[in-house]
Design a protein around this nucleic acid. Sequence first.
DNA 1: TTCGATGTGTCAATGACGCTGACCCAACAG
DNA 2: CTGTTGGGTCAGCGTCATTGACACATCGAA
Lengths: 185, 185
Amino acid sequence: MTAMPEAPDAKPVGAGRQLLFLREEELRLAQDLLFFGYRDFTAGPDAILAELGMGRAHHRVLHFVGRRPGITVGELLAILGITKQSLGRVLNPLVEEGYVVQAPGRNDRRQRLLSLTEKGEALEKRLFERQREWVMRAYREAGPVAVEGFRRVMRGLMGPEARAQLDRALPEAARPIGTKPRSAA
Amino acid sequence: MTAMPEAPDAKPVGAGRQLLFLREEELRLAQDLLFFGYRDFTAGPDAILAELGMGRAHHRVLHFVGRRPGITVGELLAILGITKQSLGRVLNPLVEEGYVVQAPGRNDRRQRLLSLTEKGEALEKRLFERQREWVMRAYREAGPVAVEGFRRVMRGLMGPEARAQLDRALPEAARPIGTKPRSAA
DNA sequence: TTCGATGTGTCAATGACGCTGACCCAACAG
DNA sequence: CTGTTGGGTCAGCGTCATTGACACATCGAA
């Protein structure tokens, strides 16, 4: 490839260009965007977590437990899509260090209902704020129409199970496009 | 900062109005979308790679080497953002098993210019096709306007270095919207 | 009341993927 | 000749996921 001739005014790609080539390039672009975008999206929280001897997995637990206090272990496993052994290795330290509390279920006492402690909420919020700044910048630069498109595409990239989980987890308030939960929970 | 470009095509969701300030739920949604979307986006290739005893990191090498044949090890390291030890653990098997070839640089014979063998191209293509179906489905469901928005937002989620790398790696032909290798705003 | 299914926890081993630190070689550049 | 650069390698560590097997309390129903 030639070394960037600095076209000062790269025009939008002409509509009638080689369609097949563009299709391929479109997808290569999507791959790149998702790789870099996701990596940099998680970089902020990752840095905070590293100082605490934690990783991305801890963040996910804090995130989903914070989103649905009283969630059962089984539900969390289903959402995260990992094994209970993997979850245990992350969840146990969070409990031991006082970020998460477990309470026996009222109806089914086998269950351990998870929720965040104040300490857990504080950390989750800290991670959240870091990421908020990052996402807000991207949203602001892109504009509301783009944000709506982003949501549509990301939703499309999710498998059916993940979509269902998302619908279930979402407060009806901020729901994207055609996301009517047909059989709500 | 208030008036954003009109959206003739996108459905006015709750997001259609002023989301220039990021409400809590909007960011939570973004977090969920990125987590689930990225996970499911990579699931297809992951399955193929697992059969070959490889992982996501191998795919990335195949992807970026395929995109820029003759890339140096140093450039690849910069793009991937990992250490050479980490790269070595992935790249060496790829070379040993005949997916990637190394050639000494013409100007600087210290360099090992990387490119795919036919075998490597075949595998990369196979992974690519799997992902293409997935992305195409999402793109088709979302529509062209949404795709454009998706690109803008993902680009915004990338850090400055990643954006520069993306511009550098891209054939000037198929470049997304406002991506003249300079502007931001 | 017994018994199987369920929710959860845990031990042990494995593997992918990243890191740091230290050191090496070959080639370039002064 | 010397210092820097491009690349490789050994040794060790940590996170995050896996599988398989087992333990235990509880629930629900025969």
